[in-house]
Each structure stands twice: as structure tokens, then as C-alpha cells.
Design a protein around this nucleic acid. Sequence first.
RNA 1: GCCGGAGUGGCGGAAUUGGCAGACGCGCCGGACUCAAAAUCCGGUGGGGCUCACCCCCCGUGUGGGUUCGACUCCCACCUCCGGCACCA
Length: 953
Amino acid sequence: MGQGASGAMPRYNPQVIEPKWQRYWEEHQTFRTPRLPEGQKYYVLDMFPYPSGEGLHVGHPEGYTATDIMARYKRMRGWCVMHPMGFDAFGLPAEEHAITKGVPPQESTYRNIANFRRQLKMLGFSYDWSRELATTDPDYYRWTQWIFLVLFDTWFDPQQQKGRPIAELPIPEEVQAQGPEAVEQYRDEHRLAYQAEALVNWCPALGTVLANEEVKDGRSERGGHPVQRIPLRQWMLRITAYADRLERELDLVDWPEGIKALQRNWIGRSEGAEVDFFIGSQEEFQQWRQRRQQTGFPRKPEPNVLRVYTTRPDTLFGATYMVIAPEHPLLDQLTTPEQREQVEQYRRQAATKSDLDRTDLAKQKTGVFTGSYAINPVNGREIPIWVADYVLMSYGTGAIMAVPAHDERDFEFAQQYHLPVVAVVDPEQAEGVDREAVLAGRVAFTGPGRAINSGPYNGLTTEEFKRRITEDLARQGLGRFAVNYRLRDWLFSRQRFWGEPFPILHELDDQGRPTGRVVPVPEEELPVLLPQIDDYKPIGRPEPPLEKAPPEWLYVQRDGKRYKRETNTMPQWAGSCWYYLRFLDPKNQQRFVDPEVERAWMPVDLYVGGAEHAVLHLLYARFWHKVLYDRGYVSTPEPFMKLVNQGMILGEVEITGYQDAEGRWVSADLVASDDEDRPVHKQTGQELRAVKIDPQQAEKRQNRFVLKEHPEIRLESRAYKMSKSRGNVVNPDHVVQQFGADALRLYEMFMGPLEATKPWSMDGVSGVRNFLDRVWRLVIDQHAPQMQLHPAVADVEPNEEQLRVLHRTIKAVTEDIEKMSFNTAIARMMEFVNFFTHQDPRPKRALEQFVLLLSPFAPHLAEELWQALGHEQSLAYEPWPEWEEKYVKQETLELPVQVNGKVRGRITVPADADQEQIKQAALSDEKVAAYVQGKQVARVIVVPGRLVNVVVR
RNA sequence: GCCGGAGUGGCGGAAUUGGCAGACGCGCCGGACUCAAAAUCCGGUGGGGCUCACCCCCCGUGUGGGUUCGACUCCCACCUCCGGCACCA
């Protein structure tokens, strides 16, 4: 360096300035938010993290930086911003850790939280840390329990489509007549939180049951362990009651269409009809039909009736057999003595089959004839009733009418067991359909067409037929219009320690056996704290660890009766269902949130998080919110107005080649993967070795990468999900150490659109760090012995050109932030710096405006420069720069001139030139004239401000 | 199979009420500074062609068609990749 005092030279040093400003913000409570908004409010929320032992992942700061930019920007625009952070801290990993290492979950959880908090603060996010919460705080889960009690105290009124207090549930007379116990039972059957003996997804390896949402292909989503179906008493939440509103009210929110589609898909609403099939003799059938004419369609079918749900009532005449699920309650009654043995065996088989087996065997359908017949209500024909596990008890009525001619599954089953196929829909000229084969029953046709073989309905279109027959069936009391949902009720209990205890007591009799009666723990006694236990291990039986709690916790004496506490705990999703409300009033000891505060801040204006929560968290939270809304505890029907999903960040791009055992290269197009995802040779099946290739050794030919030395060997070039096993995980601590927090923030925003999946690149980080260095040198004289402004920085008025660049930058950056198009906003700022680096003098005023523009993205650097420019206070509440249109507009425009669509020249015209002037200028341009010469000008298209196209012949 | 999303230089990406394809950054090449290196600064960089004398020409946004004066953008058919669902009657 040659200069003695080089250490004192004011270089850009994030290691020093970042902690400095973090300390400043903390000391000055810069981002403290008032109880009630002052002026216009803006609630910007991140999906709070699960504090894992690994610490922050580079995926976290992506969304967090985006929201932080919005928060800082809005503050400078004068909005009152709510921007909190907390931790979703209940969950399996802490408990697994407790089991293997013997560390109590409380301890490891709070240690992990401390680490997360440190990392988040290191990145300079402008959270109001005084609102921090963790779902594991007794002061928080007290209110999670309280909301559970609200759910317990609520029934859904289908008339009003609304949750109401259980006390308002109308009790039918016949129930009333059976006494108070029956009434209580009737109430319990209608609560949104209820107990059921449910077939649950029991995972022996995890020692808990799982929600349907947590099971993928018969294995647990976490860990990939096998899952079995066993019956167990469980707490359920009646989310299906809200299915309709959860779907319909998606219209109220500004979410990506893709996420809405995902939720609609999950809810899976379908319309069709319920139809009753009589089981008995022809004579009885006639009487039954007549009776039904009078009574209409009953709420529950009589025992001699099989009720089915179908979306295609128009194919009723094509029903050639029926199928009921193995768990169907009528199965016993329908099974004839001759068939009993077979049916029993089949039922046992189906019951012990795990979901995994059921999926594996999906290719081959199985079933057994019950021996009974049902009578088709529309034509009086008798058809056999089968039992098969391709029909699910949990959907519709657990029974179907099978129409093999017009349903793929029924067709497959009919082929398997040689059941008749009768076509009742003529596909006519439907594209790509073999009409002859359909009519002959050789293939299934599932599309719409025209009715045949359907008696009086022949000739109707599918659409028309559906409507007519549904009406006709309803009039005769044989069927009714019906809606079904794929969505199931939410299995809400877990056999784990590290979750919220249920505020529920089970009454015991004199022998200490449960009577079946449950009572809620009174609100004043909340929270029900987790007890101290020494052994967290699941027992291997579906019996919760809380069974091992000390008796003084487990047993409660009340009004002379003994009660045992509920020992299941709530699933991890519980805490995240309402945290956005608690942030508004985190210290409130009287209520879960003060209504005044709630009304002032809700709804969340912007919610950012990963798409992996598209169905689970977002559906559950919306459900709870709607219940709270119906019960008058919150003021908005939906919690999250605008939702943005940040994309995944992948590891660095890797180029991979493949070699066989002898070390010979194998072209990537000859490589397949086996069951365990290992590479094998497509033809020989031989196992191959994946080799990481240095980019220097590869080159691109056409659209593929090949080995430079052997161009016939194709390589694979792609980025993979970050994972410990692949060793491509990027640690934010290291990035901050090496490049600084501002560089990390800026890079994550510069990588590409927020929503896109994008690969990490350390070179990219150093690129934006380079930009920050240039910003520093734009303002600071780094060769001076101490901190001082660059000599070119002067208190002068900007010239015309500088004003233009400045104002265009302000406009572009502002509009890009509004669109959350952060990558392009950063590109605009880079252009500004490229331009102003060459300016001498550099007007201080212009630089100040620029520093303000930069501040939401790189807040530490911006604060430091703001101070160097002579300001004493933080820039966090400085007014956002405004642009003036007169500097943004151009006086003259350079327009390209095309001849027959190809650019052949360019002209310069005044910005306000009219079409005729532009046309003349274009035609008189030398180059254009050369192309036009000797040809006929057919048309001249002038697009103001864009281009001119001369069409010649 | 069904539902979403995406295919643009060596790489990340920019540009759509249809109007100059490749902004900005990385990488690479060349130059300046230096004894040298790092850092920094300047210039170049889609492919091909040309007497490549810096001018000009042709091709080019996954593939094939179409609409249009004009298509990365709209329409039809298809291919590939990513995400989700998957016996839901």
C-alpha cells in the first residue's frame, strides 16, 4: 500500500458498519411500532421459521429481505408499518433431539431460538423485536388453548353458513326427550372440535399419528417412514363444514392464481347427486318407491337402502353393478352366507393393508361379490353388490354405482371380474375417440356426449340429462342434488410431548375408568402447562408420552368428581394458525388480542413465505380465522390479503458426468435412475458413478453440455436442492462474514424474480459486493487518511443530464419496488452508479437521494453514507424521493425505422412530433430511402414513441 | 393421468394492452496502472458471413404450424424440465 496508516483508510467494511447500525437501531428503538397505527397502516408479515438446530438457511433471508424492503420503503412513504417476527417452535425435531440426546425440548428450543435471533439481527431486518413471540411460550399457547375452546364451543349452522355458539344449537325434540345426556351427546356431535374413533395414519417409527396432509404415498412426509391405518380415538376439527367458504372466499384475496388453484384442488369440490338403491325383492321395491313418493328423500337412508354418490347421474342406466368400501356399515348385512368367508377374508386383508400397500397394488383392482343385489331405481333392474377397496369409506357415502362404460376405474374392475359393460353415452364425433369401441363396451368413455339406452332420456346431452334426472329423482324421493369435498376433517391430536396440551378433562367413574364425558378446562385456568417428565420416548404403542406425567398433573378433582387430563397434544400447525393476531398485542394478559388493536391492523397486507405451505398452513389458518370471525373475535373474513411465495434457492450449478465400473464415460442420455435414485445404464442396467466435472472440461454444443475431450459424451448440468447429504448447503453466517449482510440481502434480491426457483452463485454475491464497493467509493474518499467525502462530491446544483438520470432512477426504482420487482430495481441503481462515477463534480443532493433509494436494500451501508453526508439521524423515516415528470420525459426521441419489419435506420424527432412529421422524417432518411427506392410504399405504420414501419412492395 | 409454473447468450436474468431481443450482473477476452501481483479503471463479448478498412448482410427467444405491417409476447399442435395431486366415483 505504501501508505503508513493504511489500516485507517476508510474502506467499505461491513464487518464494522453493520454491527454499528444494528446497535444504533436497537438503542434508538428505531423500528418500534405503536399500539395503534398512526396514519395509514401496513402490516407486512413473514412466515415465521421453525428454529431448527441447523440455524438459518439462505432460503430464509430471501423472503425476509423482500418483506424488509417493503417495510422500510413504506415507512419512508409515511405509512405506519407493522413488521414482527417470531418462532414456530413446537415440533418433532426438538423432541427427537430430546429422545436421542436427553436434552429437554424446552432447552434446545430456546437455544435454537437464540441462535436464529442472532442470525436475523445480523441481517439487519427492521422487525419490531419487542413483539417477538414463540408458540412454545406458555403465555402464547395459553391462547392457542383458548382458541381450541372456542372451536369446542362452536357448531356450524349450514343455513347461515356460519359458526355459532353451541348453546344456540337447536335440539330436536326426539333428542330432548331422551334426557340431558342425549342432549350433551348431540352437542358433542356438532362441535367443530370433536372426538372420533377414526382410522388414523399411525406411524410406528415416529410414534405418532399423522394428518392426511402429512402422509405422502403411504409414508410420512417427515422421514419417509411407513404409515399404517389403525382405529383410534382422536380429536378432529370440522374443517369440512367450512369447505364451501374456504373455497368461495378465495375470491376475496389477492393471491397467486396457482396457489388458489392448489387450495381449490385440495378442497376438491364436486357436484352430483345422491341416489338410493333399494335392496330387496321386486314387490317390496314397488312399495318402497311409492312410499318414497310420499315421504321424499330421507336425511339418512333406511337400512334396506344403499345410498351412493355420483357426479354422473346421467349414466344411471349404465350402472351394471355396485361397489361398497370394505369398512361400509352395511357390508355385514349384505353378505350372504355363501359369500361370508370370502368377504370376511377380503375385509381383513383390506384392514391390515397399509396405505403404502394400497397404492402399490393400485395397478390391479381387487374385490369380492357380497352375494346381494340392489335395484336400480330408474329401471328396476337388479345388479350385484361387490366390496372392493378402490372405493373409499371416507368419501361420499362409501358406496358407488359402477358404470364401467363411462368410468376408467369401473371399467378396469369390470374387465377383471367379467362384469357387463353397457354404453349409455354416445361420444358422437368426440375427438380421438373410437365411437364403435365405446358403443360396443370395449373401452370406457368419460367425456360428455348424447344419451342412449336411457329410456325416456335418450337424445339428451350429458349436461341437460344431469339436470333433468336430478330433478326427477328428487321429485320421486329417490335422490337429491349433492355436493362433496375431497377435503377431510382435520385430525388434530398427536401422541407427542412437545406440543400444546389440550384444555380438556375426561370424567372418570368410581373405578377410575373414563365415562366418555369430557369437559373443557375453564378459561381462567389456562394455560394448561406441559408437565415435567423425564422420559420423552414414545412407547411404540399409540399412547402419548403425557401418560407418564406425574399424577398431580394427570388427575384433577372437581365438584367431587375425578377427571383425567387429555394426554394427546396439538399438532405443530396449531400455533401458526393465529400468530399473526398475537403479534398485534403480544403482551395482553386479558385477551388473545385487543379488538381495537385487531380492527386497526388487520388484515395482513402482505404475507410472504414458501409455497410448501400453500395448502396446509394457509388452509388451516384461514379456517381458524373464519371461526374467530363468525364468533366475533376478529373483524375480517380473511387473514392474508396479498400473498407472495418466494421461490426456492438451489445449490450452485453442478456439471455431472457418468462413468461405468471400468472408468469409461457414459453419455448422460444413456443414464437412467433406479429405485433408490442411483444412476444406472439404461441398456445394461449396470450401476454407474456420478462424477463432478470442472466447468473447464465441459463445453456447450448445440443445446447440450459435452466433455471437451470426448464431445460424444453428454453431461448433465443442473442445480440441486440444497441438502446436507449433497454438501451444497450455503451458510448465511459464512456469506455475511465474507461479503457482509448488505451484500447477502442485495444478492438474494438480484438473483432473479422473487417467485422463481434459482440457483445460488458465490460469484454472483461477489458481483453485488463489488457494486456496494462502488457505491462506497462514489461517496467516500477511500484514499484519505480518515473518513471524508470523495473530493468530487460537492454542494452544487445537478446539471440537466444528472437530473434526468436521477429522476429516471427514482421513478424506475419506486415503480419496481411497488411491483416487488427487486432485481430490476437493483439493475437501475447499478446504472445510476455507473453514470455518476464518471461525474465530477457529483452533486451532493443527487447522491443523498440515491442513498435513500438504496436504503431499503442495503440499510447498513445507506445509513453509514447518510451519516457521512452530514445527517445525524437515521434515514429510516426520511421521506422517499419523488421524481419530476419533466426530467423523466425526453425532448427528442430516437426511433428505429423498419422496412418490412426489419430495422434499417433510425431517426431523431422531437418528442411531441405528430405522426405525419415522423412519417416524413422516416421516409426522408437516407438508409431508409435506399431500401424503399424503386419500390412502392404500401403503408407506413407509426407507433408513437416506439418505431416506424414502412411496408413496401 | 390430472392441475399449476417455466423453457431467451458460456451462466443468473431483462424486455409482453404485439413494436429496436439480450438491460443489469457474473464469466471470458483485450488494454491501462504496477518491477510484479492483487485491487481498480477503460474497451469488447448471441451465432455465422464479409477485402472483419468497425460498414454491411444473414440467422437467432424449446419444436412445428398459424394470425399480423410486425410475434419472446397472441392462437393451434407437440417436446422437455420443475412443483402439486393421484382409485375422491
